[in-house]
């Protein structure tokens, strides 16, 4: 039998603590271990989608609950010559294109989007970083655009193409059809009763209320219906997923 002395125990604990840290960093770099860790993200998705009737609404609030200032994050100004020119004329030439697996691919001007039935909702925006802001959003329910474009049967995901670039790459995001047809999923063009500010994604931004902020693509120029996310960007379904390894499903 090995005799454990106090000194051995303390040395062991110190080595253990140091080893745990460097061990965790080594494991963190291991692709197989990353896949094992990421299996929990799949579990989060499956369980959260199984909990309710899948069409549950996110909490809505009153005007009195609004954040005094609605924080902007990520790109605050796309600042490209094309964007600036469009902004200068109040986005009169902005086009939203439906492409990919639509039976009736088409494009909408901002005025056309605004002339469709609208939904206004006061919701809480939860950033992956931990902060929250409550804002009132007005826009067209995505379902109305999807019904006009008529999705083909093969379509499984909706990819949102954006006018902004981060670190030289175009921003994009994607959601599945369940979130696409959810009543609170809208393309918003107004925040707190005023036209959407540039910092918050003017002229059109996605609201997908049951997920974290990075899913809410800003400066949306197009919706592409696809059967798989494999061919888009690096194939992980979004800018932050490709660049930093964020989860595609951001319900938690």
């Amino acid at each position: 039998m090995t005799i454990i002395t106090r000194r051995k125990l303390i040395t062991g604990a110190a080595i253990g603590a140091g080893g745990l840290l460097s061990g965790c960093d080594a494991l963190n770099r291991n692709p197989l271990f990353q896949d094992i860790l990421a299996s929990a993200e799949t579990a989060n998705f499956v369980v959260q989608r199984t909990l309710g009737d899948r069409m549950e609404l996110a909490s809505e609030y009153r005007m009195a609950d609004l954040s005094p200032t609605f924080r902007a994050n990520g790109t605050r100004d796309p600042a490209s010559p094309e964007y600036d020119a469009s902004a200068a004329q109040g986005f009169a030439d902005w086009r939203l294109r439906l492409t990919g697996l639509f039976r009736k691919p088409q494009q909408f001007s901002l005025a056309a989007v605004q002339s469709l039935p609208q939904r206004t909702q006061i919701t809480r925006h939860d950033c992956v970083e931990g902060w929250s802001a409550i804002g009132q959003w007005t826009g067209v329910p995505l379902k109305i655009l999807l019904d006009l474009g008529q999705l083909q049967d093969k379509a499984r995901f909706l990819v949102f193409h954006c006018a902004d670039r981060l670190g030289g790459r175009p921003y994009y995001e994607s959601i599945d059809l369940l979130d696409g047809f959810h009543p609170q999923t809208i393309l918003a063009h107004r925040l707190n009763g005023s036209p959407l500010p540039v910092a918050n994604g003017a002229p059109l931004r996605l609201r997908v209320e049951r997920q974290l902020g990075y899913k809410h693509a800003k400066y949306v120029t197009g919706i592409e219906a696809v059967a798989s996310l494999a061919g888009i960007g690096e194939g992980k379904g979004g800018y932050w997923q490709d660049v930093a390894g964020y989860a595609w499903y951001a319900g938690i």
Binding site: L21, C24, L37, V128
Partner: peptide, 23 residues
């Protein structure tokens, strides 16, 4: 860094570790 996993900042990795062990 000595108090965090991973020891260099990565929100995506931190969340992966957190949720896996949360289960």
């Amino acid at each position: 860094g000595w108090a965090t996993i991973p020891s260099t900042y990565s929100l995506a990795d931190g969340r992966r570790w957190h949720f896996f062990f949360a289960w």
